[in-house]
Amino acid sequence: MRAYLNIFFVIVRRDLLLAFRNKAEWTNPLLFFIIVIMLFPLAFGSDPTLLKQLTASIIWVAALLSTCLSLETIFRTDFEDGSIEQFILSRYPLLLTVNAKILAHWISAGIPLILIALVTGFVLSLSNQTMFALCTTLLLGTPILSLIGAITAALTIGLRGGMLLSLLILPLYIPVLIFSMLAIQNATVGQSITAEIYFLAGILVLALTLAPIATSVALRIRLS
């Protein structure tokens, strides 16, 4: 058990180190996220009430798009340099490695999104309830994005072009987007958001248990 935990953290650390070393790959999706958010006020004009209504939705859509970009790199270099083969053939379960890689992806791509969203929310002076709903939905939602995205990234590994990945992933993200938007709308008008949060938490638990298994199987299939 200790050896398994040890390997888990070794791989999380490795992936974070690699993300940090490869700064362009790591920061590009985040810059893309910021730019998409900034484009909307320009497109909508400077009506503050309209912007306040739309900010949370814009942040969420931008988060989905940015995650598509960052997911492209999750297995790509490991596939190209033969690391995935070594993970599959190691004495430790592939599931362990896959879980570690997804966690590392969430730490390097998901958490910065939440932090940037927080700052954007403050800048656009969202109400406290809306901010709370935005943060909670992002906190529950971004791990789901990493988990579901990993399956698709594993399936499209070795196929050139990130476009296919986005086309496959975005429809799968719709349920998360719907529940998050409902929560934010309810919070804006001062209603309870418990139901939507429970739904998101439910999806998260489901993704947490099933997505790594699907990802491992997809990796094995792609390598055979």
């Binding site: 490795r14 180190l17 490869n22 340099d81 033969g82 083969e85």
Partner: peptide, 8 residues
């Protein structure tokens, strides 16, 4: 493939 990381 050697299974080693270029960035490490």
């Amino acid at each position: 493939a050697d299974g080693i990381k270029a960035d490490l």
